[in-house]
């Protein structure tokens, strides 16, 4: 098993991740869905500001891993720490406090179609807002400036008051990104954020995602179906196969052979 200590310092803008306390830490984590073993004995540390790509074939356990990182799932065995907290030990309330610091972008965007864009963006702020403020905002949008700023950053300011279901797929993913910006978390998890987009739109979104996480010094963990963006945009690539870590290395050390092994059709 690769160790977190193998983290490199090659990239120019890289911070010395190994010294800072980790944002995410997995210790001997396994997870099963019934009889199916999704993850087995994973050990990982992800430092602040680090950009990590999770790659591997479908069913390798990438989504499960991301769900463990933000506490949506509890591991069947082992310990998952986020921001220093053992997520399994937290009360629902404390868990929510931690989750507020973790933004998630999804493959299917997971927006509410028939709300205006502004409300979907503002949904990022729900962890901070009182119920009354949240309710009133649906009638008279609150903190418009902040939402507008986020939308401007993802390049679709003009859609502020549009209905979400009238946007194209690429635009909807931008709205989802803006929602994360408004949430302003410490870390961003992205679960195959571009699988539902055409290549050009996909490239734009990936660029945006990396640029934003870089500029704001946010930790980014992104799962990808294919490996190409991992090479160009990440500090570190983790290859997952059949629920285990096949490799965990900086892009420069990931050889075509390793990639071939990762995607090889299972034996038998």
């Amino acid at each position: 098993m690769e160790d977190v200590q193998s983290l490199h310092g090659a990239s120019a803008d890289a911070t010395p991740f190994a010294d800072a306390p980790p944002v995410f830490e997995l210790i001997n984590v396994s997870h099963c869905f019934g009889d199916l073993i999704a993850l087995r004995n994973i050990n990982l540390r992800i430092g602040p500001g680090e950009r990590v790509a999770l790659v591997g074939p479908s069913g390798a356990g990438k989504s499960t891993l991301l769900n463990l990182l933000n506490g949506s799932l509890r591991p069947s065995a082992g310990v998952v720490r986020a921001l220093g907290f053992d997520l399994a030990q937290l009360s629902p309330r404390a868990l929510r406090q931690v989750q507020r610091q973790i933004g998630v972008v999804y493959q299917q965007f997971h927006l509410v179609d028939n709300l205006r864009v502004i409300h979907n963006v503002n949904a990022g702020a729900l962890g901070r807002w009182s119920f009354l403020k949240a309710a009133w905002s649906l009638i008279w949008p609150q903190e418009v400036e902040r939402a507008a700023q986020a939308l401007a950053q993802v390049g679709i300011l003009e859609k502020l008051y549009a209905r979400t279901d009238q946007l194209s797929g690429g635009q909807q993913q931008r709205v989802a990104l803006a929602r994360v910006l408004v949430q302003d978390p410490v870390a961003i998890l992205a679960d195959e954020p571009i699988s539902n987009l055409d290549p050009e739109r996909g490239r734009e979104i990936m660029d945006l995602l990396f640029r934003l996480s870089e500029k704001m010094r946010k930790t980014l963990v992104v799962s990808l179906h294919t490996i190409e963006y991992a090479y160009t945009h990440c500090h570190r690539i983790i290859g997952l196969r059949e629920g285990g870590v096949l490799f965990d290395a900086p892009p420069a050390e990931v050889t075509p052979d390793m990639v071939r092994t990762l995607y090889r059709i299972a034996k038998e």
Partner: peptide, 16 residues
């Protein structure tokens, strides 16, 4: 589930 995962309280998730 997306809103819940980002730490929004139940009533807020319901509303949004």
């Amino acid at each position: 589930r997306a809103l819940k995962a980002q730490g929004a309280p139940g009533p807020h998730v319901f509303l949004y």
